[in-house]
Amino acid sequence: MPPAIIVEHVSKEFILRHNRAMGLKTRFLSVFHKNKREKREHFLALDDVSFTLEKGEALGLLGHNGSGKSTLLQIIAGILQPSKGRVITNGRVAPLIQLGVGFNPELTGYENIFLNASLYGFLNKEIKRRVKSIIEFSELEHFIDAPLKNYSSGMQMRLGFSVAVNLQPDILLADEILAVGDQAFQDKCLNKIAEMRRNGMSLILVSHSQEQVNMFCDAFLLLDHGQVVHRTK
């Protein structure tokens, strides 16, 4: 059986552009002439990261802010492309990464369920079979026909989480997204993830909570300045 995820020598470099303060005239002229006041900085967010996640395993990503955890998760999800290396995934991936990703604020909650699920590769007929359970799990029945722009951030998180877990993905990518709603709903989410883990789902969890990592994960990967400095098994 092939692994759920293979990450091979992945590096990611960003170019940070720093513009010194300039007036309106200078900004206008810079459109036609190379801006000599612009400074560029090469930032290596990930540096030769490799690991394999077997099917049914769960891996926690730990590290301080800026260590590369979220960048790595976005590359695995296909949101970002690596500068070097490659990522292979086997199975349907559901990313719970950033609030608002895969949603349109002008559409209703109901419409956004179809939009978000289609990005995971589901057809409309498949989504229709699951839409009732998604709405019920989110506990947003009274707001589901309202535009998403009228939702609070907590309500958007609830909807995003509900779509992801009720589509029964083979691989769930979660980035500090488990704190959704009140304590009762958080417990409901944690119980749902535990159930999915028992049914063989693979999981990568980014968290600052060692307790959550210990609860769900078979191993953890510690990142520091974009490099793997420790891994447990």
Rank of each mutant, 00 (worst) to 15 (best):
Q183E: 14
K132T: 13
P105Y: 06
I127S: 10
I144C: 07
R130A: 15
Y120G: 03
D182S: 01
S138M: 03
A174C: 07
R130N: 14
P147E: 00
L115D: 06
C189D: 05
H142R: 14
N166L: 08
G160K: 01
F161I: 12
N150E: 11
G154A: 06
K84D: 13
E106D: 13
C189W: 03
R158L: 06
A117R: 00
V101A: 15
P105S: 09
G160F: 02
G181K: 03
P147F: 00
I113Q: 01
G85L: 08
R129A: 10
P105E: 10
L96S: 07
F103N: 02
Q156N: 14
L190V: 12
A179D: 00
E139K: 14
F114L: 12
G154H: 11
V101E: 10
G91Y: 10
N116A: 09
E176T: 03
D175G: 02
Q186S: 04
S153M: 09
N166F: 05
I177R: 03
L148R: 00
M155T: 12
I171T: 11
L140R: 05
D175I: 00
P95Q: 11
L107S: 04
I97D: 02
F103Y: 13
S118L: 06
V131H: 09
P105I: 10
E136D: 15
V93K: 10
F185A: 08
G109P: 01
K132Q: 04
F161G: 02
G85W: 04
L167H: 03
L115F: 08
D175L: 02
I127Y: 04
L96R: 01
Y120H: 08
K149Q: 13
G85D: 05
L172S: 06
N90D: 15
L173R: 05
K84E: 15
L140F: 09
E111F: 01
L99R: 12
N90F: 13
E139G: 08
Q168E: 15
L148I: 15
E176C: 01
V165Q: 12
G102H: 02
V87Q: 11
V101G: 02
G91K: 09
H142I: 09
E176D: 04
G121H: 09
S153I: 08
L107C: 05
